[in-house]
Design a binder for these strands. Structure first.
Lengths: 227, 227, 227, 227
DNA sequence: GATGAATGAGTATTCATTCAT
DNA sequence: TATGAATGAATACTCATTCAT
């Protein structure tokens, strides 16, 4: 009546893994369609073709499932961002390629992005955790550069890291909400330039403008104030 | 034979207004202490010394009350940011003063800020709406400058506006979560410099660095990549 | 400071009566439009242009107001039905005129009728009370006739009265729900004939049919069974 | 290794069905005792020995449960009325047997009847739906007879059907409210005769009365007017 | 008489989670 | 492993009614 334990164990494991995968996929579909709050663990199990109780054999709750989806996506994003820095050497190339990777990611994981960071009134803290990890990466990189004496000591690396990832997140979410708001290129270019040179930057001639600004401060009171 | 209707009307109005104020204050206290989800409209009414039903005479639900608190704070913030641009003329002064205003605001409205934008898992969309309004202001300002030929046409004003307010929000929330993470000055300085010159900037001498970068790309691959 | 008590009393009375009337009219409008349950005493007061509390100065609750509307309509109906019997002498004329009066009433007071007797899920007992009074009238009349030896002793006057008013109510409500269900004439004629001769009746020749029926019972098994 | 799925499925089904039955019975008890509005779904669940939420596993709400009770009773009634027409051939036998079936039904389902059609101020529309189905049956039967040329073309079949079921419902409810109001026999006889011959009928001799009536209209102004 | 701010009791419904098969 | 019936806590909102002016 008992098959070999090994075999059974192997089969069981594979079966369990398959169930888990189906639940994850069902969750991704439902979350993308309905957001986070209105989806129930029951609904996910049903969508995956299982009974309600089965869900809890594989996930603590729906937030755990969502966190796992987000985790996978987040790791993929980090991997891509890191790849850029090893492939490119030119400064502006790196920045541009990173912005491109971010935008591509936003395109591919649009629903997930909106849920993790936004989606009208809902939220989890997965977005915050993802940002924190990105910021940690940026910050670490900054410290390396600082140790090499290559960066401006006026920047606090942690604050700067938050500034950069905050900029990324806001632009990507805003764009993901309605991709018609800007062209893909506009998003990439603006993020790249802002990250590299700030909002005061004028493209063609980086130098020589400082003087102009100093001379005619009224012409470019570039404070970016609201209203 | 009765009190004058005017008088009654006035008193009635004052009474209703006072009740409303007490509810707002009670809400502020409870939200700051317990966050948004765990506070009930009943609790707010009780904290204010009223019956449960009274709450609904003045607010649709607890989110409406919170939105009103946030709205007031948001308007105050916009007012301050705007004031800066009329008081200062020097570019760097404006940017610095704005960063200072933002940091001061984060200090004064710390709880509100954390609830509106973060607070572990909760959320409303008031944060998003506030940011959008700030972004609208920035964007409008940008368009004015662009019309005056004073800005870089490479920037999409909408994208840039999102980038700036995203940077602000992330840094302020991160700092509000734990003010020990950075000094007040570090936050202001980093935000100011990043906004004006980007992360590639080296403070003292804006020019002459482009060559250095081009020559030693490995020294300053300023891609701000994670990890 | 005090006007003559008489005068004031008179004016007050008139004013109160006017308020009451306006509330009744407002109630009629709202009940007709929204039914009984979804209308609140607040809404009635507001529709009439008064404050919420004023309602309770004139009516115990919305059901009392509705009962008063129904009472007035009911008395009008009884008056008309009674008038018919004094104006007509011919038996069939009376029955026909009554049916006509009932149908006219259903046309004029369509909304009230639907609310009092039906209106999907709502109800009060005003309908039942109205029917009971109509039945009392019918029953009393029957007893008079019985005392004069003019009616069939096989009929229990109370049961018969219920049967007649039940027939009336059901047909009128059914027709009021959708007047396109039958022509005015069909309703009147069918009610009249059924009331006078029952469903076994064949119009043209009341007599001589009994024989036919007796001879060919299978031709007219007039059991009116469902299905 | 587990119990056979079939077995489990069967047991599960039986268990669920048993729970459902217990809820229905509990509902019947409570509705009969307290009417429709004052009974809560919680109370039904508790009466049946289950937790509050269990109720909603089996019924949408208390009205759904009541509708199911009423539906079962209604079908039983229709079944009996139909059986009569197949068992009897004599016209008067059918009508009498139907009236008897209706009265028996009213005796057996007294509480349900009162709730569905009356019960002081409460109501659902289940009564209306039941009547409509009965009327549909009567109407269909009438059309068959009409097609066979066996009925009076003066009758609109739909109006007549409403008249008959209205008569039934009113008499039965009136009697169910207080069975002492009339004897069982009086109810049956009066309903039967009214349905067959109308209120003008005089039992023994259907003909020859027309002349009398025409001659002495004042003696039998059989208008059944109220008052 | 009229006002209208305040009251507060009352209840349906969802859904994460468990556990006996 | 999977099932799915059962659990039961948890909570917003309405609205009839009052009463101080």
């Amino acid at each position: 009546m008992n098959a070999a334990p090994d075999q059974n164990g192997g089969r069981r494991l594979a079966r369990a893994r398959a169930t888990r995968e189906r639940l994850l996929e069902a969750g991704r579909r439902l979350f993308a369609a309905q957001g986070l709050v209105s989806v129930t663990s029951h609904a996910i199990a049903e969508e995956a073709g299982f009974a309600a109780g089965t869900f809890y054999l594989h996930f603590k709750d729906k937030h755990a499932l969502f966190a796992e989806l987000a985790e996978a996506a987040s790791q993929e994003l980090e991997r891509r961002l890191l790849a850029v820095t090893t492939e490119k050497t030119e400064l502006s190339d790196i920045a541009y390629a990173q912005a491109d990777a971010l935008v591509s990611f936003a395109e591919e994981q649009r629903e997930l992005l909106l849920i993790a960071f936004h989606r009208g009134g809902e939220s989890t803290d997965v977005g915050a955790r993802i940002l924190q990890r990105l910021a940690d990466g940026v910050s670490a990189r900054r410290r390396e550069l600082a140790a090499a004496g290559a960066t401006d000591p006026a920047f606090d690396p942690d604050v700067l890291a938050q500034a950069i990832v905050g900029m990324w997140a806001q632009v990507l979410v805003w764009w993901a909400e309605d991709p018609a708001r800007a062209t893909r290129e506009d998003v990439i270019r603006t993020m790249t330039h802002f990250q590299l040179f700030g909002s005061r930057h004028e493209t063609t001639d980086l130098c020589g403008q400082g003087a102009a600004t100093a001379e005619n401060p009224n012409d470019t009171p570039d404070g970016d104030d609201p209203r």
